[in-house]
Design a protein around this nucleic acid. Sequence first.
RNA 1: GAGGGUGUAGCUCAGUAGGCAGAGCACGAGGUUGUGGCCCUCGGGGUCGCGGGUUCAAGUCCCGUCAUCCUCCCCA
Length: 413
Amino acid sequence: MEVNLSKIQKIRGFQDIYGEEAKKYRYVVDTFRKVFEFYNFKEIILPYVEDISLFKRSVGEATDIVQKEMYVFTDKGGREVALRPEGTASCVRAYIEEKMYAEGGYHKLFYEGAMFRYERPQAGRYRQFHQIGAEIFGVSSVLADAELISMVDNVLKKLKINYKLEINSLGDFQSRKSYTQNLVNYLKKYENQLCETCQKRIELNPLRVLDCKVPTCKEITKEAPKITEFLSEESQKRFLQLKEYLKALNVDFIENPRLVRGLDYYTDTVFEFITEEIGAQGTVAAGGRYDNLVEQLGGPPTPALGFAAGIERLMLLVKDLPKEKPLITVIPITPDYNIQSIQLSNKLRNINLKSETMLKEGSLKSMLKTADKLKSDFVVFVSDKYELKDMASGQQEIFYTQEDLIEALKDKI
RNA sequence: GAGGGUGUAGCUCAGUAGGCAGAGCACGAGGUUGUGGCCCUCGGGGUCGCGGGUUCAAGUCCCGUCAUCCUCCCCA
Protein backbone atom coordinates (compact mmCIF):
# COMPACT_ATOMS: atom_id res chain seq x y z
CA MET A 1 0.00 0.00 0.00
CA GLU A 2 1.35 3.35 -0.98
CA VAL A 3 0.56 6.19 1.32
CA ASN A 4 0.69 9.68 -0.04
CA LEU A 5 1.43 11.90 2.94
CA SER A 6 0.64 15.06 1.04
CA LYS A 7 -2.97 14.00 0.83
CA ILE A 8 -3.66 13.51 4.50
CA GLN A 9 -6.20 16.06 5.54
CA LYS A 10 -8.18 16.85 8.62
CA ILE A 11 -11.26 14.77 9.00
CA ARG A 12 -14.72 16.04 8.36
CA GLY A 13 -16.10 18.50 10.85
CA PHE A 14 -12.72 19.09 12.52
CA GLN A 15 -10.72 22.25 12.08
CA ASP A 16 -7.36 23.93 12.44
CA ILE A 17 -7.81 27.24 14.19
CA TYR A 18 -4.88 29.55 13.50
CA GLY A 19 -3.94 33.14 12.73
CA GLU A 20 -6.72 35.66 13.21
CA GLU A 21 -9.13 32.86 14.09
CA ALA A 22 -6.94 31.67 16.93
CA LYS A 23 -6.80 35.24 18.22
CA LYS A 24 -10.57 35.42 18.15
CA TYR A 25 -10.80 32.10 19.97
CA ARG A 26 -8.47 33.39 22.67
CA TYR A 27 -10.30 36.70 22.87
CA VAL A 28 -13.68 35.03 23.38
CA VAL A 29 -12.35 32.60 25.96
CA ASP A 30 -10.31 35.20 27.83
CA THR A 31 -13.28 37.54 28.02
CA PHE A 32 -15.35 34.81 29.65
CA ARG A 33 -12.55 33.81 31.98
CA LYS A 34 -11.99 37.33 33.22
CA VAL A 35 -15.67 37.77 33.99
CA PHE A 36 -15.83 34.35 35.66
CA GLU A 37 -13.02 35.39 37.90
CA PHE A 38 -14.86 38.50 39.08
CA TYR A 39 -17.93 36.39 39.80
CA ASN A 40 -15.75 34.03 41.82
CA PHE A 41 -16.19 30.96 39.65
CA LYS A 42 -13.46 28.31 39.98
CA GLU A 43 -12.09 26.35 37.07
CA ILE A 44 -12.59 22.63 36.75
CA ILE A 45 -10.63 20.73 34.12
CA LEU A 46 -12.66 17.73 33.07
CA PRO A 47 -11.91 14.57 31.09
CA TYR A 48 -12.84 14.39 27.42
CA VAL A 49 -13.84 10.75 27.70
CA GLU A 50 -16.53 9.45 30.01
CA ASP A 51 -18.51 6.31 30.60
CA ILE A 52 -21.24 6.30 27.99
CA SER A 53 -24.01 5.81 30.54
CA LEU A 54 -23.25 9.20 32.10
CA PHE A 55 -24.65 10.89 29.01
CA LYS A 56 -27.50 8.45 28.60
CA ARG A 57 -28.65 9.15 32.13
CA SER A 58 -28.22 12.92 32.09
CA VAL A 59 -28.71 14.26 28.59
CA GLY A 60 -31.46 11.75 28.00
CA GLU A 61 -31.72 8.41 26.26
CA ALA A 62 -34.24 9.73 23.73
CA THR A 63 -32.31 12.83 22.64
CA ASP A 64 -30.56 13.04 19.29
CA ILE A 65 -27.30 13.71 21.07
CA VAL A 66 -27.38 10.28 22.68
CA GLN A 67 -29.24 8.48 19.91
CA LYS A 68 -27.04 9.37 16.99
CA GLU A 69 -24.46 12.03 17.69
CA MET A 70 -22.03 10.55 20.18
CA TYR A 71 -18.55 9.39 19.37
CA VAL A 72 -18.61 6.03 21.09
CA PHE A 73 -15.96 3.35 21.32
CA THR A 74 -14.87 0.43 23.38
CA ASP A 75 -11.48 0.88 25.00
CA LYS A 76 -8.91 -1.88 25.46
CA GLY A 77 -10.37 -2.76 28.82
CA GLY A 78 -13.75 -3.35 27.24
CA ARG A 79 -15.30 -0.19 28.66
CA GLU A 80 -18.01 1.54 26.66
CA VAL A 81 -16.87 5.15 26.54
CA ALA A 82 -17.84 8.32 24.71
CA LEU A 83 -16.15 11.58 23.78
CA ARG A 84 -18.12 14.13 25.74
CA PRO A 85 -20.89 15.80 23.72
CA GLU A 86 -21.43 18.49 26.36
CA GLY A 87 -19.97 19.64 29.65
CA THR A 88 -22.69 19.67 32.28
CA ALA A 89 -22.88 15.90 32.69
CA SER A 90 -19.16 15.62 33.44
CA CYS A 91 -19.32 18.54 35.78
CA VAL A 92 -22.15 16.98 37.76
CA ARG A 93 -20.35 13.65 37.81
CA ALA A 94 -17.26 15.35 39.21
CA TYR A 95 -19.27 17.27 41.78
CA ILE A 96 -20.64 13.97 43.08
CA GLU A 97 -17.51 11.88 42.66
CA GLU A 98 -15.25 14.42 44.38
CA LYS A 99 -17.85 14.84 47.12
CA MET A 100 -17.84 18.59 46.81
CA TYR A 101 -21.22 18.66 48.53
CA ALA A 102 -19.46 17.58 51.71
CA GLU A 103 -17.45 20.80 51.77
CA GLY A 104 -20.53 22.81 52.66
CA GLY A 105 -21.45 26.18 51.22
CA TYR A 106 -22.10 26.06 47.53
CA HIS A 107 -19.96 25.64 44.42
CA LYS A 108 -19.48 27.77 41.33
CA LEU A 109 -17.44 26.04 38.64
CA PHE A 110 -16.48 26.79 35.05
CA TYR A 111 -14.98 24.65 32.33
CA GLU A 112 -13.75 25.12 28.81
CA GLY A 113 -12.79 22.88 25.95
CA ALA A 114 -13.72 20.64 23.07
CA MET A 115 -16.99 18.80 22.73
CA PHE A 116 -17.78 16.18 20.11
CA ARG A 117 -20.98 15.50 18.23
CA TYR A 118 -21.26 13.48 15.06
CA GLU A 119 -23.47 15.79 12.99
CA ARG A 120 -23.38 17.17 9.45
CA PRO A 121 -21.17 20.22 9.60
CA GLN A 122 -22.58 23.56 8.51
CA ALA A 123 -22.24 27.23 9.38
CA GLY A 124 -21.34 27.49 13.07
CA ARG A 125 -21.41 23.75 13.57
CA TYR A 126 -18.53 21.33 13.77
CA ARG A 127 -18.02 17.78 14.95
CA GLN A 128 -15.35 18.97 17.32
CA PHE A 129 -16.48 22.29 18.66
CA HIS A 130 -15.62 24.28 21.74
CA GLN A 131 -17.70 25.40 24.62
CA ILE A 132 -17.13 27.43 27.69
CA GLY A 133 -19.64 27.08 30.45
CA ALA A 134 -20.32 27.43 34.15
CA GLU A 135 -22.38 25.59 36.74
CA ILE A 136 -23.63 26.48 40.20
CA PHE A 137 -24.30 23.65 42.66
CA GLY A 138 -26.19 23.80 45.92
CA VAL A 139 -28.22 26.96 45.43
CA SER A 140 -31.96 27.05 44.92
CA SER A 141 -32.34 30.82 45.24
CA VAL A 142 -33.45 32.60 42.09
CA LEU A 143 -30.66 35.05 42.79
CA ALA A 144 -28.37 32.45 41.25
CA ASP A 145 -30.47 32.21 38.08
CA ALA A 146 -30.44 35.98 37.75
CA GLU A 147 -26.73 36.35 38.36
CA LEU A 148 -25.85 33.54 35.98
CA ILE A 149 -27.92 35.01 33.15
CA SER A 150 -26.66 38.49 33.88
CA MET A 151 -23.09 37.24 33.83
CA VAL A 152 -23.49 35.79 30.33
CA ASP A 153 -25.20 39.01 29.30
CA ASN A 154 -22.21 40.94 30.58
CA VAL A 155 -19.75 38.85 28.60
CA LEU A 156 -21.70 39.17 25.37
CA LYS A 157 -21.87 42.91 25.87
CA LYS A 158 -18.12 43.03 26.39
CA LEU A 159 -17.70 41.09 23.15
CA LYS A 160 -19.86 43.75 21.46
CA ILE A 161 -22.10 41.34 19.64
CA ASN A 162 -25.78 41.66 18.73
CA TYR A 163 -28.06 39.20 20.44
CA LYS A 164 -31.33 38.81 22.18
CA LEU A 165 -32.11 36.85 25.30
CA GLU A 166 -35.13 34.60 25.57
CA ILE A 167 -36.28 33.11 28.85
CA ASN A 168 -38.93 30.70 29.94
CA SER A 169 -39.84 28.46 32.85
CA LEU A 170 -40.48 24.77 32.41
CA GLY A 171 -41.64 24.44 35.98
CA ASP A 172 -40.69 21.83 38.50
CA PHE A 173 -40.93 18.15 37.81
CA GLN A 174 -44.63 17.97 38.71
CA SER A 175 -45.82 20.94 36.72
CA ARG A 176 -43.75 19.89 33.76
CA LYS A 177 -45.34 16.47 33.91
CA SER A 178 -48.92 17.66 34.07
CA TYR A 179 -48.27 20.20 31.33
CA THR A 180 -46.72 17.60 29.09
CA GLN A 181 -49.75 15.37 29.56
CA ASN A 182 -52.07 18.21 28.62
CA LEU A 183 -50.00 19.14 25.61
CA VAL A 184 -49.98 15.55 24.39
CA ASN A 185 -53.76 15.37 24.73
CA TYR A 186 -54.10 18.56 22.74
CA LEU A 187 -51.64 17.52 20.05
CA LYS A 188 -53.27 14.13 19.60
CA LYS A 189 -56.40 15.87 18.39
CA TYR A 190 -54.43 17.29 15.47
CA GLU A 191 -52.02 14.43 15.06
CA ASN A 192 -52.60 13.78 11.36
CA GLN A 193 -52.16 17.48 10.52
CA LEU A 194 -48.73 17.69 12.12
CA CYS A 195 -45.53 17.13 10.18
CA GLU A 196 -43.97 13.68 10.29
CA THR A 197 -41.26 14.53 12.78
CA CYS A 198 -43.75 16.19 15.08
CA GLN A 199 -45.94 13.11 14.99
CA LYS A 200 -43.00 11.18 16.34
CA ARG A 201 -42.27 13.93 18.84
CA ILE A 202 -45.64 13.46 20.50
CA GLU A 203 -44.31 10.25 21.97
CA LEU A 204 -40.60 11.04 22.19
CA ASN A 205 -40.36 14.68 23.19
CA PRO A 206 -43.69 16.52 23.00
CA LEU A 207 -42.26 19.85 24.18
CA ARG A 208 -40.18 20.09 21.05
CA VAL A 209 -43.31 20.30 18.90
CA LEU A 210 -43.60 23.86 20.20
CA ASP A 211 -40.30 24.65 18.52
CA CYS A 212 -41.22 23.27 15.09
CA LYS A 213 -40.72 25.59 12.13
CA VAL A 214 -43.29 23.96 9.84
CA PRO A 215 -46.11 26.55 9.34
CA THR A 216 -49.00 24.14 9.94
CA CYS A 217 -47.40 22.93 13.16
CA LYS A 218 -46.87 26.52 14.25
CA GLU A 219 -50.52 27.20 13.53
CA ILE A 220 -51.62 24.26 15.63
CA THR A 221 -49.34 25.02 18.57
CA LYS A 222 -50.48 28.64 18.63
CA GLU A 223 -53.64 27.51 20.35
CA ALA A 224 -51.96 24.85 22.42
CA PRO A 225 -51.96 25.08 26.21
CA LYS A 226 -49.07 27.19 27.46
CA ILE A 227 -46.64 25.97 30.04
CA THR A 228 -47.04 29.15 32.07
CA GLU A 229 -50.61 28.10 32.84
CA PHE A 230 -49.42 24.89 34.43
CA LEU A 231 -46.66 26.17 36.62
CA SER A 232 -47.00 25.42 40.29
CA GLU A 233 -47.43 28.39 42.57
CA GLU A 234 -43.80 28.03 43.59
CA SER A 235 -42.57 27.95 39.99
CA GLN A 236 -44.68 30.97 39.09
CA LYS A 237 -43.25 32.88 41.99
CA ARG A 238 -39.74 31.95 40.97
CA PHE A 239 -40.30 33.03 37.39
CA LEU A 240 -41.74 36.38 38.46
CA GLN A 241 -38.87 36.92 40.79
CA LEU A 242 -36.34 36.08 38.10
CA LYS A 243 -37.82 38.69 35.81
CA GLU A 244 -37.74 41.23 38.58
CA TYR A 245 -34.08 40.53 39.31
CA LEU A 246 -33.15 40.67 35.65
CA LYS A 247 -34.79 44.05 35.29
CA ALA A 248 -32.92 45.24 38.36
CA LEU A 249 -29.70 44.11 36.69
CA ASN A 250 -30.61 45.90 33.43
CA VAL A 251 -30.74 42.68 31.47
CA ASP A 252 -33.09 42.91 28.49
CA PHE A 253 -35.05 39.74 27.83
CA ILE A 254 -37.97 38.39 25.88
CA GLU A 255 -40.35 35.90 27.43
CA ASN A 256 -40.81 32.99 25.06
CA PRO A 257 -43.34 30.45 26.34
CA ARG A 258 -42.36 28.14 23.47
CA LEU A 259 -38.75 27.98 24.50
CA VAL A 260 -37.91 24.42 25.48
CA ARG A 261 -34.48 22.99 25.51
CA GLY A 262 -33.36 19.79 23.90
CA LEU A 263 -31.79 18.23 26.92
CA ASP A 264 -33.91 16.28 29.36
CA TYR A 265 -32.54 17.59 32.60
CA TYR A 266 -33.90 21.14 32.72
CA THR A 267 -36.42 22.34 35.32
CA ASP A 268 -37.81 25.84 35.95
CA THR A 269 -35.55 28.45 34.38
CA VAL A 270 -34.33 28.01 30.80
CA PHE A 271 -32.70 30.67 28.67
CA GLU A 272 -31.12 31.13 25.29
CA PHE A 273 -28.96 33.90 23.86
CA ILE A 274 -29.75 34.08 20.16
CA THR A 275 -28.35 35.93 17.17
CA GLU A 276 -29.70 36.28 13.68
CA GLU A 277 -26.36 37.09 12.11
CA ILE A 278 -24.85 33.66 11.60
CA GLY A 279 -27.43 31.69 9.67
CA ALA A 280 -29.42 28.78 10.94
CA GLN A 281 -27.39 28.02 14.05
CA GLY A 282 -28.43 31.07 16.00
CA THR A 283 -28.03 29.96 19.59
CA VAL A 284 -24.72 31.21 20.96
CA ALA A 285 -25.21 30.47 24.63
CA ALA A 286 -27.91 28.66 26.54
CA GLY A 287 -28.66 26.98 29.80
CA GLY A 288 -31.01 26.63 32.68
CA ARG A 289 -31.74 25.07 36.01
CA TYR A 290 -31.56 21.32 36.61
CA ASP A 291 -32.61 20.68 40.17
CA ASN A 292 -33.04 16.92 39.83
CA LEU A 293 -29.93 15.96 37.92
CA VAL A 294 -27.44 15.61 40.76
CA GLU A 295 -29.74 13.24 42.57
CA GLN A 296 -30.53 11.39 39.36
CA LEU A 297 -26.85 10.69 38.89
CA GLY A 298 -26.46 9.30 42.38
CA GLY A 299 -25.60 12.37 44.42
CA PRO A 300 -27.52 13.95 47.28
CA PRO A 301 -30.51 16.11 46.27
CA THR A 302 -28.81 19.29 45.10
CA PRO A 303 -30.33 22.21 43.24
CA ALA A 304 -28.12 23.35 40.36
CA LEU A 305 -28.00 25.42 37.21
CA GLY A 306 -25.61 26.30 34.44
CA PHE A 307 -25.01 27.44 30.90
CA ALA A 308 -22.71 26.79 27.98
CA ALA A 309 -21.59 29.05 25.14
CA GLY A 310 -20.44 27.96 21.70
CA ILE A 311 -17.04 29.50 21.11
CA GLU A 312 -17.04 29.07 17.31
CA ARG A 313 -20.42 30.74 17.03
CA LEU A 314 -19.26 33.68 19.09
CA MET A 315 -16.12 33.91 16.96
CA LEU A 316 -18.34 34.42 13.92
CA LEU A 317 -19.81 37.48 15.61
CA VAL A 318 -16.67 39.10 16.95
CA LYS A 319 -15.75 41.95 14.66
CA ASP A 320 -12.75 43.73 16.04
CA LEU A 321 -10.09 42.30 18.25
CA PRO A 322 -8.32 44.29 20.93
CA LYS A 323 -5.27 46.17 19.71
CA GLU A 324 -1.98 44.33 19.83
CA LYS A 325 1.33 45.59 21.08
CA PRO A 326 3.37 47.27 18.36
CA LEU A 327 6.04 45.09 16.82
CA ILE A 328 9.67 46.16 16.65
CA THR A 329 11.74 44.20 14.15
CA VAL A 330 15.49 44.25 14.55
CA ILE A 331 17.47 43.88 11.32
CA PRO A 332 21.23 43.35 11.28
CA ILE A 333 22.47 45.24 8.29
CA THR A 334 25.05 42.53 7.65
CA PRO A 335 25.66 39.23 9.50
CA ASP A 336 28.48 41.03 11.34
CA TYR A 337 25.79 42.61 13.51
CA ASN A 338 23.88 39.39 14.30
CA ILE A 339 25.01 39.21 17.91
CA GLN A 340 24.21 42.84 18.62
CA SER A 341 20.80 42.30 17.06
CA ILE A 342 19.75 39.27 19.06
CA GLN A 343 20.94 41.01 22.20
CA LEU A 344 18.92 44.09 21.39
CA SER A 345 15.79 42.02 20.73
CA ASN A 346 16.19 40.31 24.08
CA LYS A 347 16.61 43.59 25.84
CA LEU A 348 13.41 44.91 24.30
CA ARG A 349 11.48 41.79 25.27
CA ASN A 350 12.73 42.06 28.83
CA ILE A 351 11.17 45.48 29.15
CA ASN A 352 7.89 44.13 27.74
CA LEU A 353 8.20 45.37 24.21
CA LYS A 354 7.30 42.97 21.41
CA SER A 355 10.34 42.34 19.31
CA GLU A 356 11.18 40.20 16.33
CA THR A 357 14.70 39.51 15.16
CA MET A 358 14.92 39.34 11.39
CA LEU A 359 15.59 35.62 11.00
CA LYS A 360 15.54 35.53 7.23
CA GLU A 361 18.83 36.51 5.68
CA GLY A 362 19.03 38.29 2.36
CA SER A 363 19.49 41.68 0.83
CA LEU A 364 18.56 44.62 2.99
CA LYS A 365 15.69 45.21 0.62
CA SER A 366 14.31 41.71 1.02
CA MET A 367 14.73 41.84 4.81
CA LEU A 368 12.83 45.09 5.00
CA LYS A 369 10.16 43.62 2.78
CA THR A 370 9.89 40.67 5.14
CA ALA A 371 9.65 43.05 8.10
CA ASP A 372 6.74 44.66 6.31
CA LYS A 373 5.10 41.27 5.80
CA LEU A 374 5.47 40.56 9.50
CA LYS A 375 3.46 43.74 10.08
CA SER A 376 6.26 45.51 11.91
CA ASP A 377 5.39 48.88 13.34
CA PHE A 378 9.03 49.79 13.80
CA VAL A 379 12.29 48.51 12.34
CA VAL A 380 15.70 48.97 13.90
CA PHE A 381 18.65 48.66 11.52
CA VAL A 382 21.68 47.55 13.47
CA SER A 383 25.16 48.58 12.30
CA ASP A 384 27.75 50.66 14.15
CA LYS A 385 24.68 52.71 15.04
CA TYR A 386 20.95 52.11 15.47
CA GLU A 387 18.50 53.46 12.94
CA LEU A 388 14.90 53.48 14.04
CA LYS A 389 12.37 53.48 11.23
CA ASP A 390 8.70 54.17 11.72
CA MET A 391 7.09 51.92 9.12
CA ALA A 392 3.91 53.92 8.80
CA SER A 393 5.56 57.27 8.12
CA GLY A 394 8.89 56.00 6.77
CA GLN A 395 10.77 58.44 8.99
CA GLN A 396 14.10 57.44 10.49
CA GLU A 397 16.13 58.52 13.49
CA ILE A 398 19.70 57.62 14.35
CA PHE A 399 20.91 56.56 17.82
CA TYR A 400 24.42 55.68 18.91
CA THR A 401 23.59 53.67 22.04
CA GLN A 402 20.93 51.07 22.80
CA GLU A 403 19.88 53.14 25.81
CA ASP A 404 19.04 56.17 23.69
CA LEU A 405 17.18 53.97 21.23
CA ILE A 406 15.13 52.34 23.97
CA GLU A 407 14.24 55.68 25.52
CA ALA A 408 13.00 56.92 22.15
CA LEU A 409 10.98 53.71 21.62
CA LYS A 410 9.35 53.98 25.02
CA ASP A 411 8.17 57.48 24.12
CA LYS A 412 6.62 56.31 20.90
CA ILE A 413 4.83 53.26 22.28
C1' G B 1 -29.81 10.51 8.16
C1' A B 2 -32.16 13.78 3.61
C1' G B 3 -31.65 17.78 -0.14
C1' G B 4 -28.76 21.51 -3.06
C1' G B 5 -24.12 24.41 -4.60
C1' U B 6 -18.78 24.07 -5.33
C1' G B 7 -13.71 21.46 -6.18
C1' U B 8 -8.40 24.31 -12.06
C1' A B 9 -1.27 27.67 -9.33
C1' G B 10 -0.16 29.48 -2.29
C1' C B 11 -5.13 32.74 -2.69
C1' U B 12 -9.51 34.57 -5.74
C1' C B 13 -11.24 32.79 -10.06
C1' A B 14 -11.61 32.45 -15.97
C1' G B 15 -11.49 28.37 -19.35
C1' U B 16 -16.28 29.55 -24.97
C1' A B 17 -18.56 24.02 -29.41
C1' G B 18 -14.29 18.24 -26.24
C1' G B 19 -8.40 20.31 -29.63
C1' C B 20 -1.04 23.01 -26.47
C1' A B 21 -3.39 24.86 -18.85
C1' G B 22 -4.78 30.86 -18.20
C1' A B 23 -5.37 35.84 -15.50
C1' G B 24 -5.06 38.90 -11.21
C1' C B 25 -3.03 38.82 -6.49
C1' A B 26 0.88 36.39 -3.69
C1' C B 27 6.07 34.50 -4.07
C1' G B 28 11.45 35.11 -6.02
C1' A B 29 15.25 38.11 -8.72
C1' G B 30 16.30 42.69 -10.89
C1' G B 31 15.37 48.10 -12.27
C1' U B 32 17.46 51.21 -7.15
C1' U B 33 25.53 47.48 -5.33
C1' G B 34 22.12 50.52 2.72
C1' U B 35 15.65 50.76 2.90
C1' G B 36 9.13 48.10 2.60
C1' G B 37 4.37 50.00 0.39
C1' C B 38 3.54 52.60 -5.82
C1' C B 39 5.44 51.52 -10.88
C1' C B 40 8.18 48.50 -14.69
C1' U B 41 10.92 43.90 -16.45
C1' C B 42 11.98 38.84 -15.93
C1' G B 43 11.24 34.20 -13.32
C1' G B 44 9.54 29.78 -10.37
C1' G B 45 5.30 27.33 -9.63
C1' G B 46 -0.46 22.64 -11.85
C1' U B 47 -1.30 14.47 -10.51
C1' C B 48 -7.36 20.48 -13.40
C1' G B 49 -10.08 16.70 -5.78
C1' C B 50 -9.62 11.16 -6.58
C1' G B 51 -11.03 6.57 -9.47
C1' G B 52 -13.21 4.60 -13.69
C1' G B 53 -15.83 5.13 -18.56
C1' U B 54 -16.94 7.39 -23.65
C1' U B 55 -13.54 9.51 -27.51
C1' C B 56 -8.27 9.91 -32.28
C1' A B 57 -8.38 13.60 -28.25
C1' A B 58 -11.53 15.04 -21.58
C1' G B 59 -10.42 20.66 -17.08
C1' U B 60 -14.80 20.29 -20.40
C1' C B 61 -19.34 14.61 -21.53
C1' C B 62 -21.05 10.06 -18.31
C1' C B 63 -20.75 7.02 -13.65
C1' G B 64 -18.79 6.52 -8.90
C1' U B 65 -16.20 8.47 -4.76
C1' C B 66 -14.03 12.05 -1.33
C1' A B 67 -13.82 16.90 0.50
C1' U B 68 -16.09 21.55 1.29
C1' C B 69 -20.11 25.16 1.82
C1' C B 70 -25.35 25.85 2.61
C1' U B 71 -30.33 23.97 4.09
C1' C B 72 -33.55 20.32 6.84
C1' C B 73 -33.21 17.38 11.35
C1' C B 74 -30.88 18.60 16.06
C1' C B 75 -27.94 21.60 19.06
C1' A B 76 -23.70 25.67 21.64
